[in-house]
Amino acid sequence: MSGPLEGCEREWLELEGEFQELQETHRIYKQKLEELTALQTLCSGSINKQKKRLKDLWLELQRYKRHAGSEEAELVQQMRAYIKERQNIFFDMEAYLPKKNGLYLNLVLGNVNVTLLSNQAKFAYKDEYEKFKLYLTIILLLGAVACRFVLHYRVTDEVFNFLLVWYYCTLTIRESILISNGSRIKGWWVSHHYVSTFLSGVMLTWPNGLIYQKFRDQFLAFSIFQSCVQFLQYYYQRGCLYRLRALGERNHLDLTVEGFQSWMWRGLTFLLPFLFCGHFWQLYNAVTLFELSTHEECREWQVFVLALTFLVLFLGNFLTTLKVVHTKLQQNRNKTKKP
């Protein structure tokens, strides 16, 4: 047997040995995967049973509280606090278990499991999500500047508005995945992107004309300012996320202004004036559009609908930001009062 052929035979025997090890490793992997699936099913079922029993207990305490004495009322209040704490623990547990997608994800992705099972995977996804927002914000900023000062064509406006629609649709999908993986985004922050997507879609369908031209420059200037604010928010949220994660105090997927602590005020006090300025600019857009809707040459339905949408955005953003800041201020005051 020639030398090269003997070398090939040795290589094959080595590959055969490694293949046998690979088969055994894969067999163990499938076994562990089945065990993992069984554990996931067991945990999910146990959590659901616990949540149902806690719900029944909560209702029973509600009924009993009406006729309880002072000491009994205090015990009821304490038990209700324990139940709320237990619900928060269940929320953290479910972040590492497969779950059904929400309505929006079901419509877009179908029944696809989007659960990330490790902290490393969750943080990597959150980090990539923030970078995605940053890159798209820069593109939208450049697009708004180009449309406002260089390209005065309807087709470029349509491209810009299409990018806005795609941007908010994509953010909605990505935030829905974050929520499925344990992020505490809730309330208005969930609805904001839906409303913004609708607004951008209406802007895309608004035909060119006198009324459109009257509002065009104002909208593009607002888009430039909004992109700048989002740029500032990115660095503020990213800094808070990394610091809180390093301190081990927050979830890997936390974001928005909720959850800030006293040491964050240095950055937040700088950011809040820009946020409130953007909110009131939305109100100014709504007032302008309401006035344009009464113009004698206004025939487009988009004008009044956009006015209402900007008003909804202003009320949602302004009131929610006020509520969050007030709540956190109260929490900080209560902490300082404690001995």
Rank of each mutant, 00 (worst) to 15 (best):
Ser70Asp: 01
Leu164Thr: 02
Val112Met: 10
Ile211Arg: 02
Lys214Cys: 11
Lys328Leu: 15
Gln226Asn: 04
Phe231Gln: 04
Cys147Asn: 04
Val165Ile: 15
Leu204Gly: 02
Thr205Tyr: 13
Phe314Ser: 00
Leu151Asp: 03
Ser293Leu: 12
Ala73Glu: 01
Leu241Asp: 00
Lys32Trp: 10
Tyr194His: 01
Leu178Glu: 09
Leu244Val: 11
Thr205Glu: 09
Glu258Phe: 13
Asn88Gly: 08
Thr115Val: 14
Phe91Ile: 11
Glu72Arg: 07
Arg10Glu: 09
Val190Ile: 14
Glu24Ile: 06
Phe314Asn: 02
Lys84Gly: 08
Trp206Gly: 00
Leu178Cys: 14
Cys228Ser: 07
Arg216Phe: 12
Phe290His: 00
Trp263Pro: 09
Tyr153Cys: 13
Tyr29Val: 11
Ile139Arg: 00
Phe215Gln: 02
Glu296Met: 07
Arg63Trp: 09
Glu85Met: 10
Ser70Arg: 05
Gln331Phe: 14
Thr327Trp: 13
Arg174Phe: 14
Leu105Gly: 03
His26Pro: 06
Leu244Trp: 14
Glu34Met: 11
Tyr96Leu: 06
Lys49His: 08
Asn181Thr: 09
Arg86Met: 13
Glu60Cys: 09
Phe123Thr: 06
Lys335Pro: 00
Gly45Phe: 07
Ala95Thr: 04
Cys169Ile: 15
Met264Asp: 14
Thr205His: 02
Leu116Gln: 03
Gln282Thr: 01
Gly267Cys: 05
Gly248Leu: 10
Phe123Gln: 07
Tyr284Asn: 05
Leu75Pro: 12
Gln226Gly: 01
Leu103Ile: 14
Phe215Pro: 05
Tyr96Pro: 06
Leu319Glu: 06
Gln237Lys: 01
Ile139Ser: 02
Phe19Met: 12
Asp127His: 03
Cys277Ser: 04
Arg245Tyr: 06
Arg216Thr: 02
Ala95Val: 06
Gly239Arg: 05
Phe149Cys: 07
Gly248Pro: 05
Arg80Cys: 13
Gln50Tyr: 11
Phe276Cys: 02
Lys84Met: 14
Gln31Leu: 14
Arg243Lys: 13
Phe280Ala: 07
Glu300Val: 13
Val257Asn: 01
Phe280Asn: 09
Trp206Cys: 07
Tyr236Leu: 05
Gly45Val: 10
Gly17Phe: 14
Thr170Glu: 03
Gln282Ser: 06
Leu289Arg: 00
Ile173Gln: 03
Ala73Arg: 07
Gly316Lys: 01
Ala95Glu: 05
Ser196Tyr: 11
Phe219Ile: 13
His279Arg: 00
Met203Ser: 03
Asp92His: 04
Phe162Ala: 12
Asp92Met: 11
Thr41Cys: 01
Leu268Tyr: 10
Gln282Glu: 03
Phe260Ser: 02
Leu107Lys: 02
Trp263Met: 05
Leu22Glu: 07
Gln330Trp: 13
Tyr153Pro: 01
Thr321Val: 08
Pro98Cys: 03
Leu289His: 00
Leu204Glu: 00
Leu107Ile: 15
